[in-house]
Design a protein around this nucleic acid. Structure first.
Lengths: 339, 339
DNA sequence: GCGTCCTGAGACAGCGCTACCTTAGTGACC
DNA sequence: GGTCACTAAGGTAGCGCTGTCTCAGGACGC
């Protein structure tokens, strides 16, 4: 069989399964989809026939006929952050056993790129979408609303009425970091943030709020850099901050890689952590517990967010909209030697 | 018109584009696909009509009619390794501008899971596949050969005759690590490996070979652990090795995260690097240059592998099989203070 | 002037599946 | 006993595209 020019796939089709099991194609279709109106005995016969032929439904034909695919689109702002990898992995674990394909779109923290991805992925007629947070372009919003595709938002809570979200309060996480440092007796508190996506800004806001409550706000100790977060940048921003404000005694880093870079930079410069300056990171990436000294960090439930968001979406697909609109999975302060 | 719209997508169709531009649907189809037999003037009219309607071709209908989709399947053994993230990103950069969807399959270093993924993804009638290395199950091999889907292998070189591969010699990389340590005057050389996938074993083999050539082979200094590679494991294996063989003066780690863990462990234990023991990592992950001391590592062309593999696949799809069967992109030893 | 080639355009017929409607068969109910 | 739900199966007709064949018309050669 030559590949080019052949219009058929060469794979077994539903019609063959039907013939082999002695039923009509439509009954075979229903049996394989688990539609309840098929007698158990027949269904079993169809399953057996399908298995013996190695039949796998053609997703293109299926999508065309039913005007919806068995794909779920996940849009995330970055792949280079371990955070989203863990979330993705958990989503896969929920979706694959249900026969749902996961299409991953990385929009590189660019809402215009996200809009393009949405436009393109909607052509695939996904049965659901998992989105990161709530900030998006007006065009994206229009596309999503017009499409009526069920969706769940991840990582942040809130959003417009009726929106399902699974995550935790980024604001409270930032506040918790500040409170911890205050509890440790630190008074000149700084925060260092990069990337400056909405979630980072919410954490920063929470941190600020705690300082205001303690009467210790110090806007001159806020370092906000729009560059992507990285270990190198963390070291750099840390050095710069210390040069500018040598009396800083506690720092909250809005991402763990920044904090890791700072810990390493402190080692190089002989700055004692936490004696001279305490450090708190965010996300509790695997490396943080192994830093010297081990890094205090806020552990975020990234796998759980993926899992719960996927399950919430499955609930929407099944029509049974279970649970609260906002699922707060919380976070955990992992206190280690850096603070 | 049927009563319910549930079978239709609600999106503009090719027929509407054709109507608006005053040509037949098939001509519109050809114009939008860039088939050359359409007069430029007509083609332009069709493009304009499509743009004004916001037309996006229905991939399901397209795949069904032509028995092949516009998807490319990429199978990788892990997502938690930054290595493959960079490769994936590069693949996306080549494929997306060509209108090709990238389907990512993570088989978690499990060739049985890979076989399942292949079986499922073949149902999507991908126009091409990018595979990692050459080790796979017999079932996978049969499926791939039966499917005739064009494919390119990444990361390793070689494979059966006619196979296209883009990567570098893992063996030579391991050998280069050993030679570097020998050049530095180290004589009691160990290697520490985890995960033990085929590429790790090839690097180990190259390392061994260099030691044999130098008459310094020491099988008692080989640490092979099947667990997934991680920072924590690196520190652990390093401590264990040093307890068992205190005279070790150089170590090659088959993955950078192992090496990073070891550097940090050495810091904690007060073991001087490189004075007492020199260290060389593999992959040159972003964090390695920021370790204390900065880690010597072998930089692998992971983004270039993705890019070139994607381009080689595009070449296959266009029928012009360009370049060599094996594209060796080499590697680079990044010498830093740890050795 | 006639046949041949070539080119650009269209007609037609599905690709493999499922939504929708219809039909046979079952028991429930008055 | 007849009507009425109600269920389980099948028939029919597409979903929105594209491969293949066909055809009109111009260029070209003898």
């Amino acid at each position: 069989m030559s590949r080019t020019g052949s219009r058929t796939t060469g794979r077994p089709t539903l019609a063959e399964v039907a013939r082999l099991s002695g039923v009509s194609p439509i009954t075979a279709s229903r049996a394989l989809r688990g539609v309840s109106t098929v007698a158990p005995a027949l269904a079993e016969k169809v399953m057996a026939a399908a298995a013996s032929l190695g039949y796998i439904a053609n997703p293109a034909a299926r999508a065309l006929a039913s005007a919806r695919s068995h794909s779920v689109v996940v849009l995330i702002p970055s792949l280079s952050n371990q955070l989203f990898i863990d979330t993705l992995e958990a989503i896969h674990e929920v979706m694959r056993p249900r026969g749902l394909e996961v299409l991953i779109g990385n929009y590189h923290y660019d809402i215009a790129e996200e809009e393009n991805l949405i436009r393109n992925y909607l052509a695939y007629q996904p049965c659901g979408m998992l989105l990161t947070g709530f900030e998006r372009s007006e065009g994206s919003r229009l596309l999503l609303n017009a499409s009526q595709v069920p969706r769940v938002h991840m990582m942040e809570l809130g959003g417009e009425a009726g929106a399902l979200s699974v995550g935790f309060s980024q604001f409270e996480a930032g506040r918790a970091a500040a409170r911890h440092l205050l509890q440790r007796g630190r008074r000149r508190l700084a925060f260092i943030a990069a990337q400056l996506d909405p979630r980072v800004m919410q954490r920063a806001e929470g941190f600020r709020q705690a300082l205001v409550e303690a009467g210790l706000q110090a806007t001159e100790l806020e370092v906000l850099d729009p560059q992507p977060s990285s270990i190198g940048l963390g070291g750099e921003l840390f050095s710069r901050l210390l040069a500018k404000a040598p009396d800083v005694d506690g720092i909250f880093f809005c991402n763990d890689d920044l904090a890791q870079g700072a810990v390493l930079q402190a080692l190089r410069e002989g700055i004692e952590v936490p004696r001279r300056v305490a450090m708190v990171g965010f996300n509790d990436l695997p490396a943080s517990a192994h830093m010297v000294p081990p890094l205090t960090s806020i552990r975020t439930p990234r796998a759980a967010v993926g899992r719960s968001a996927a399950q919430a979406l499955l609930g929407l697909l099944d029509g049974k909209r279970v649970g609260a609109e906002q699922q707060d999975l919380g976070f955990e302060l992992m206190v280690r030697e850096s603070s």
